[in-house]
């Protein structure tokens, strides 16, 4: 009996620092992994490089162009569309200003290089979304989902992923169907 007691009391103090050490090692490695993740951009959405640093403010606010001038399909189709070079060349066949971006655009248009804009707003592939339905029928303004894009002077660097909570919130607010089949395909 006394042998057992001494054995237990002698082993007790050793076990406690062991557990603390394990927790500490785990915490440090977790923080390190998280830090590496942040630095290398694991948690960020993918970055996007546009062919030209398009200035929305210049076009929409200063020159009073509507969204549909360049995004030609959102009133008639499910998608909104990004402008092809012929839309740009209606105004920019010759330089209108002195910006470096415009000079690059004019050069690209003259050399007949294709303008490959990258989509900044992406919904998952299992979602059905109709721009026409939302803009024409429901009368929702572009800003509701896209934010104040008209005020930006250069394109955002990262893709913005839209979340289901945004859709559901708006649907509930407007008393629109929230059945799975309404949006999921």
């Amino acid at each position: 009996m006394p042998f057992c007691e001494t054995a237990m009391t002698s082993s007790e103090p050793e076990r406690v620092p062991d557990r603390r050490l394990a927790i500490a090692v785990f915490a440090v490695s977790f923080c390190a992994a998280a830090a590496i993740g942040f630095v290398t951009g694991q948690f960020r959405s993918p970055s996007v490089d546009q062919p030209i640093a398009f200035n929305h403010r210049k076009h929409v606010i200063d020159n009073q162009l509507g969204c549909s001038t360049c995004h030609t399909f959102y009133e008639t189709e499910t998608f909104s569309g990004l402008p092809a070079s012929d839309i740009c060349s209606t105004c920019h066949a010759e330089p209108l200003g002195k910006s470096a971006g415009e000079a690059k655009l004019v050069k690209m248009l003259k050399e007949q290089q294709p303008l490959v804009w990258k989509s900044l707003f992406q919904e998952p592939l299992h979602v059905f979304f109709s721009h026409r339905r939302h803009v024409v029928k429901a009368g929702i303004r572009c800003e509701r989902c896209h934010g104040n894009f008209a005020l930006t002077t250069s394109p955002p660097r990262r893709v913005r992923r839209l979340k289901m909570a945004d859709c559901i919130g708006c649907h509930e607010e407007r008393n629109v169907s929230v059945d799975c089949t309404t949006c999921h395909r």
């Binding site: 799975c180 089949t181 309404t182």
Partner: peptide
């Protein structure tokens, strides 16, 4: 099951 009876 949705309101229109389709099991999604």
């Amino acid at each position: 099951i949705g309101k229109e009876g389709i099991v999604a």
